[in-house]
């Protein structure tokens, strides 16, 4: 079973390796960030958080009736998501969504949006 996922991963990796190799061979090409160094944005948090924008607007800037959350802090967002997850807050659909994430994932999502707001307000 793990083998199957490893094989999916290796397909992407071969391409990634090929591309990074070719990048190094390209004169004037941008240098790739070495793997393992600290990054500004956690890629897991990012990929989890991109989902939210479909209903709450890009970066959480809502143009509809759904609440926008751009500018809210990570701790505010984590608290709200945990409340939705644990049925501590009324919702039509948010509770159904929040239950799909582990507490760790909720933290990552909250930190992504919290960080985003902070970054842009500088």
């Amino acid at each position: 079973m793990v083998k199957k996922i490893t094989s999916w991963l290796s397909v992407g990796l071969i391409s990634a390796a090929a591309l990074s190799g070719c990048n190094a061979n390209t004169p004037g090409g941008q240098e790739t960030t070495p793997q393992g160094t600290a990054e500004e944005v956690d890629p897991r948090g990012q990929i989890l958080a991109l989902s939210c924008a479909s209903c709450h607007g890009t970066d959480g800037k809502s143009v509809g009736i759904m609440p926008g959350f751009y500018g809210k802090s990570a701790s505010y967002l984590k608290n709200a998501l945990m409340e939705f997850k644990n049925d501590g807050r009324y919702s039509t659909v948010m509770g159904r969504h929040a239950k799909g994430y582990t507490d760790e994932e909720i933290t990552l999502i909250a930190e992504y949006f919290g960080g985003l707001s902070q970054q842009n307000s500088k």
Binding site: L13, I14, A16, A17, A18, L19, G21, C22, T26, Q30
Partner: peptide, 15 residues
């Protein structure tokens, strides 16, 4: 991936 298969690289035509 750092051990990568660099041999299979597709050449790019632009940076």
């Amino acid at each position: 991936s750092t051990l990568g298969v660099f041999g299979g690289a597709t050449p790019l035509l632009a940076n």
